[in-house]
Design a protein around this nucleic acid. Structure first.
Lengths: 331, 331
DNA sequence: TTGTAAGCGTTATCAA
DNA sequence: TTGATAACGCTTACAA
């Protein structure tokens, strides 16, 4: 077991008390330059740095934030993780990445984060069932929770999301203008509130344009294989004349899977035979091979807001940010 | 500030001493069933669970592992993060995700992990400069380090990597058999040892087949835009008759960028006019649009090995695992 | 089996 | 400015 130098040892080496050493490492503390110099010298020699664990035990602040993720198939997670860690670290916080996929019990993950005294818990786009938070194992004293990139109607849990209402209106406006009139909607896991909400807005805006019928297609999960598979099923069982002329998919990965199947297995031209729209603006959707029309989430701004809430620079509240319609060749 | 119940409070509620409470929460401890029952009851009522921070301070074991990542542009990071967190959590460990991109000082990240007393540090595919570890700020008592998915010739730092020698031999054998004779190699950041090594093996195996000249193309970073840009430059300044007939790219993302540019901007057919090979077997490379021939890293096995080393179930040593050639339509 | 004392390395608070 | 005391919540070792 490695051994770290302690403040006490540095104190002895520098000929002061350990409390003076502590002060030397505390930004605004009152200490003479001379004492500080001696201490820093001894500290460097002994390779001392404060033990953050002990500090946390005293202060009850860990500067750790748990980030719960359940869906690693969505490449959109990566830019979110990048921005999030970057912004957190800039605030002196560090992210504990917690995988809550099927293998793990969500409640257990929350309890574990609690036992580690994290300063906050972020649910990053997780398919969290609202009931989870009502589990009796979860006491009242949990760390503050925040939802990022997924709707939360959980009372008292602030969420920062991309405004699906504005987004879908923009999309439907665009599609209608382009002349599409037989829309379909592909969901990834339709039991989730986010999916339902997007589906709802999509239908609603089409209704306002006089289009009442939306074809529903559902994929199991948010992977391009599942997108491909559900598109395949739909195209197989639907004669060409009755097919949708535009397929809106809940995210880019599903859209790419659907688009690829339509093209390679059914010989359909995109967008002439069938147009495809995604959501998220995943990087590769923009390559010429796909040219996917999509809606871009304001990832950086969303992360900024969440981190401001966590650090207390901003009141915790649910915020919807508008994104940006990105029109490409698939529509 | 929220208040957690302590062992002492539970002890009072259950009418025992706090040490008995501790024992009730310690797996193999000697305690009567009756006492344990009473304690668990009181604990549940008070919503008590052990404070892991305090435990760590005493035991000097945090069950936390720092995972350093610098390149979030590579979607391959996601499956690695997924497997890694899954395996670590199965062992009762949790991952601290630390972003060490340009904005952050690598040495500082290491020191911070050290101050948090992490049990180990994993460098996940990071472009770590070997000098970093020689920084004088880094004392001898750092937590054990491990390199995952990138070569490390750092003394005493075990690495688990995909064997690039075997991989490149398989690739070159395949390409030669297909009749390609004018190979090119695209690196993402050629100063890195991994890139140099792959490039070296690629050239070496071609030499064994009697092909001595390799065209070098270098991209700035590992993004599909950079892959596209460097392919564009090369194709612009090279007459069709002198071009490579196969382009091996250091990873799939570069390959996809290059392939797309060749097709959409230069009207080249893949693989007839130019074949393209990637490395990693990134999920979307397999879609019909790309059909990218690539080499698959044994992600799960690699993670398994690293975690076994971390938990001490296996001696720490550098291990190269063979991957799997995945032949698709791009060659 | 259970209780006691000492210690982990810090911080907060107060006295000097 | 500095030193001392108590506390954070747990673990280990030992005694009852």
């Amino acid at each position: 077991m490695r051994k770290r130098a302690t403040a006490k040892e540095v104190a002895e080496a520098a000929g002061v008390s350990k409390w003076t050493v502590i002060r030397a490492f505390k930004p605004g503390a009152s200490i003479t330059d001379e004492a500080k110099r001696k201490i820093m010298e001894a500290a460097e020699k002994l390779n001392y740095s404060p033990n953050l664990l002990a500090r946390s035990l005293s202060t009850n602040v860990t500067h750790q934030v748990a980030v719960l993720v359940d869906d690693f198939a969505n490449p959109q997670k990566l830019p979110f993780l990048e921005s999030l860690t970057e912004r957190l670290q800039a605030e002196g916080l560090v992210a504990m990445l917690i995988n809550i996929n099927n293998h793990f019990d969500h409640v257990h993950a929350l309890l574990n984060a609690d036992q580690r005294l994290v300063d906050a818990i972020i649910l990053l786009g997780t398919a969290f069932r609202d009931e989870t938070l009502n589990d009796r194992r979860l006491g009242p004293g949990m760390p503050p929770m925040f939802v990022l990139a997924r709707d939360s109607q959980i009372e008292g849990v602030p969420a920062v999301v991309c405004d699906s209402e504005v987004g879908l209106r923009d999309i439907v406006d665009h599609l209608h203008e382009r002349g599409y009139r037989r829309p379909g909607f592909m969901t990834g896991a339709s039991a989730l509130s986010t999916a339902l909400k997007r589906r709802h807005h999509f239908a609603e805006f089409w209704r306002q344009k006089g289009v009442d019928h939306i074809v529903d297609i559902s994929a199991e999960r948010y992977s391009h294989e599942d997108g491909a598979e559900s598109a395949r099923r739909y195209l197989q069982e639907t004669p060409a004349s009755e097919r949708v002329d535009v397929l809106m998919c809940e995210n880019d990965i599903l859209a790419i899977g659907a688009m690829e199947t339509a093209r390679s297995e059914f010989g359909l031209r995109v967008p002439d035979d069938i147009a495809v729209v995604g959501f998220d603006n995943y990087e590769l959707g923009g390559t010429p091979a796909f040219g996917l029309t999509t809606y871009e989430q304001p990832c950086r701004e969303m992360v900024d807001l969440i981190v401001e809430m966590i650090t207390g620079k901003r009141e915790g509240e649910t915020i919807s940010l508008p994104g940006k319609l990105v029109v490409r060749s698939s529509t």
